[in-house]
């Protein structure tokens, strides 16, 4: 029983990471049709900025520096690299691919290829007993952060004018443009949101895995892609549900079925969802 609880909570912690990466990816894709391979780079930039800043300030504040760095990177990438290629989807993907290759190499040259120990706030070091299981406290930090982001995103999309534009733009971009609204401002906005969520995920991944390396972003990105496709592109709740599904499946099967089996199961789930609902869970 305690094993099951531990696996479930750890799985939810992983789900939190997947959701933070996937929600931005999904919004960017849903609105701007950009498959953003550089999203993993935003994550790594956030993680390394936090790692760097933690020398001068408490970790909690350093995470904010990381998020700011992630937002700045994302906005710069959108304005300088993505915007000139507006409506040329393939070229945009190619640019983000080049950026992810060059960006990881750049991080490697600055911080070295080896994993660096990541600073952790002292209050996540302990364990919390839940139903007889001893759960490391950092799992709850991850889950809490993802819940907060989920609620904030949902409120933003539901109650603000820009949220309305983003939702309408995902639904039908031409129509929003025809109404005289400059959708491209919303593109920058979703990139900024995605960059913030990804950078937060980077810091949390550093706390969760206890180290940070230039490849961290890339390895999380692939599962985030899977979450986005299963959840339905452009849907934040879809990403949330898919993230939980994918992470729990992965945790449990990896534990009971041998290491690696869970990852394979996740891809099998993707195949099943595609055959059954090609547009993802959110879109019937």
């Amino acid at each position: 029983m305690s094993t099951i609880v531990l696996l479930a909570v750890t799985g939810l912690g992983l789900a939190a990471l997947y959701f933070l990466v996937a929600s931005g990816l999904s919004l960017v894709f849903g609105l701007a049709d950009v498959l953003n391979f550089a999203h993993g780079l935003f994550l790594s930039v956030g993680a390394y900025a936090t790692w760097w800043a933690a020398d001068f300030m408490p970790v909690e504040a350093a995470v904010l520096v990381g998020v700011a760095a992630g937002v700045a990177t994302a906005v710069l990438v959108e304005l300088i690299l993505i915007r000139p290629l507006y409506r040329r989807t393939i070229e945009q993907v190619l640019v983000t691919v080049g950026l992810s290759l060059a960006g990881v190499a750049l991080l490697q040259s600055v911080f070295g290829a080896d994993p660096r120990p990541f600073p952790r706030p002292t209050w996540v070091e302990g364990v919390v007993p839940v139903f007889g299981a001893r759960i490391p406290a950092d799992r709850f930090l991850l889950i809490g952060a993802a819940l907060l982001v989920f609620v904030a995103l949902a409120a933003f999309l539901r109650y603000t004018r820009y949220g309305l534009i983003v939702r309408a733009g995902v639904e039908n971009r031409e129509m929003v443009t025809a109404l005289g609204i400059d959708v491209r401002k919303a593109f920058t906005l979703v990139f900024a949101i995605g960059g913030a969520a990804a950078a937060l995920a980077g810091s949390l991944a550093g706390i969760y895995f206890t180290t940070v390396s230039p490849g961290t972003g890339g390895s999380l990105l692939i599962f985030a892609f899977i979450v986005v496709v299963i959840g339905g592109m452009g849907s934040v709740p879809g990403s949330a549900v898919a993230a939980i599904l994918v992470a729990l499946l992965q945790q449990f099967v990896n534990y009971y079925g041998g290491s690696g089996a869970g990852d394979v199961c996740v891809v099998a789930l993707l195949a099943v969802v595609l055959l059954w609902r090609p547009k993802g869970l959110a879109k019937a």
Partner: peptide, 28 residues
């Protein structure tokens, strides 16, 4: 046969996921 059921960028993501299984098997 499975991946081509979706178009465009979704196809790209699905092929990426399938290939990832290969990478995992090789690594394990």
């Amino acid at each position: 046969a499975v991946a081509l059921r979706v178009d465009g960028i979704a196809f790209s993501m699905v092929t990426l996921a399938f290939a990832q299984v290969g990478a995992i098997i090789v690594a394990r």
